[in-house]
């Protein structure tokens, strides 16, 4: 017989999103391993061209994603209290953080394009461009999900008793942040 007082451990959000998150983590994990093992046989090349990356942009983007994730956590906390208005405000702030990430990332890509860098320039740039662009697309998808949640929250679609959708959107956004937490040191710093 289940112990009545034992708090049941609950997975936040839908089970489906967590299956999707695991699949995405698997793909990124393979991508990271491919980068790391390719670097192992091209150390000088990777170390040389890593120096051409805009680390300030990478660091600012890391801070933006972490801060946006913090805002999303505050949004979930707010809706758990039934406070839709604050939930919407925190989600809007998170979207601003995501927008900032996209802006700095696009500036970075534009600079590289202006220098004539492309996927075929060399192996390092092929990994750098494909990995960061792949993540860039996930940030956009994460923002679309958060925006949909924001609209529903604004219509009063969530409450203290029913907020699975907010937790689902939050979980996906945090995955996008978690992946960047690995990507930034791996590509921009480790040498």
């Amino acid at each position: 017989m289940r112990h009545p007082n034992k708090t049941t451990r609950q997975l936040p959000g839908d089970l489906a999103i967590w299956i999707f998150i695991l699949a995405e983590l698997l793909v990124f994990g393979v991508f990271f391993a491919a980068y790391a093992f390719t670097r192992a046989s091209h150390v000088a090349l990777f170390n040389q061209y890593q120096q051409t990356l805009n680390r300030e942009s990478g660091a600012i983007n890391t801070a933006l994603l972490i801060t946006a994730s913090y805002f999303v956590v505050r949004a979930v906390q707010a809706i758990k209290r039934g406070d839709s208005k604050r939930c919407v405000n925190w989600l809007a702030a998170a979207l601003l953080g995501g927008g900032g990430f996209l802006y700095f990332k696009m500036m970075e890509f534009a600079d590289k394009a202006a220098e004539g860098v492309s996927l075929s320039t060399n192996t390092f740039y092929m990994f750098y461009l494909s990995l960061t662009f792949f993540h860039f697309m996930h940030v956009i998808l994460g923002m679309v999900i958060l925006f949909a949640v924001l609209l529903k929250a604004r219509r009063g679609g969530y409450s203290a008793a029913d907020h699975t959708g907010v937790e689902t959107g939050a979980a996906y956004w945090h995955m996008v942040d978690l992946v960047w937490i690995v990507l930034f040191p791996l590509v921009y710093v480790i040498r």
Partner: peptide
């Protein structure tokens, strides 16, 4: 990563 997984994603209570 641990704090994002445990506290931001909320898997501490999962």
């Amino acid at each position: 990563g641990h704090f994002i997984i445990a506290d931001f994603m909320g898997l501490r209570n999962a």
